[in-house]
């Protein structure tokens, strides 16, 4: 237990938060980098995966291909991808750029499968009759997507983003292997210095950050649950499964209460 107390003491030691402290400190700078890498990687992944997922979910085309493809992507060892990319990219550009690009690509590849799955399984979970009826009332395909499918599947879409973000937050640590920042730097330097407080402190910071971000997403998921569809959004990845089995919301019974 002492180990943890010492690690927390290290985290809360004001000296570790002083601007200009010796690298890899101060902590807030590494935190900011960690969040920035996460944000950029997830943003790029979302820009690729969301439109693709919407296309697959709306048209039903290419579903089989994408499922097996993302299955393969999930199996890629991110660290291996990182070293491979930095090596390959290193031939054609300066190593700092290669390292940064390689890290970003590895993280984007990591985040894409979850976001993609959230988007297309979200759209697939929308009651076919609702979509059919929207089309029969004269909505264009784009209007069906934007006004019906996306609002109704928003909690699942956000759920996909949420697990993508969490995976990336936990994995940004590898950026330090190629000399980039992030909280991984603190752990790496702790290993170098044989400083257990630093190693554990860094790990705790990452965990806390992940929990915090997860909490924020839980709130967003709850807020995006469409009011007419009922229950507050489930938490975590199990939401995808549970909500997919949900009864079509168009069937109601008298005086049925919204949970």
């Amino acid at each position: 237990m002492n180990l943890f107390i010492d690690a927390f003491a290290w985290i809360f030691d004001p000296a570790n938060w002083v601007a200009g402290a010796q690298s890899p400190l101060p902590i807030q700078d590494r935190l900011a980098e960690h969040l920035l890498y996460t944000f950029v990687a997830v943003l790029i992944a979302a820009l690729i995966a969301l439109p693709l997922g919407f296309y697959i979910g709306h048209t039903g085309k290419g579903r089989q291909f994408v499922i097996s493809f993302t299955g393969g992507m999930r199996a890629l060892p991110t660290l291996g991808v990182l070293f491979f990319l930095t090596m390959v990219l290193g031939y054609s550009m300066v190593s700092t750029t290669a390292n940064f690009l390689g890290t970003m690509i590895a993280l984007v590849l990591l985040a894409i499968p979850s976001i993609l799955a959230g988007a297309y399984s979200g759209l697939e979970s929308v009651d076919r009759q609702t979509i059919d009826s929207a089309r029969a009332s004269g909505m264009t395909e784009l209007q069906i997507l934007v006004k019906v499918e996306i609002p109704l599947s928003l909690p699942l879409i956000v759920g996909g983003l949420r697990s993508g973000v969490l995976q990336v937050i936990a994995t940004v640590v590898i950026a330090s292997y190629v000399g980039l920042g992030g909280l991984g730097r603190i752990i790496a330097s702790g290993i170098g210095l044989n400083d257990y407080n630093r190693i554990l402190g860094g790990a705790i910071l990452i965990t806390a950050l992940a929990l915090l971000v997860d909490g924020v997403f839980a709130v967003i998921q709850r807020l995006t649950a469409t009011p007419g569809v009922g229950g507050p959004a489930d938490t975590g990845r199990s939401a995808v499964r549970r909500q997919a089995q949900r009864q079509p919301a168009t069937v109601g019974t008298p005086n049925q209460e919204r949970e």
Partner: peptide, 8 residues
């Protein structure tokens, strides 16, 4: 049949 209303 079931009205086909938009649930949201």
């Amino acid at each position: 049949q079931n009205g086909g209303l938009l649930p949201h």
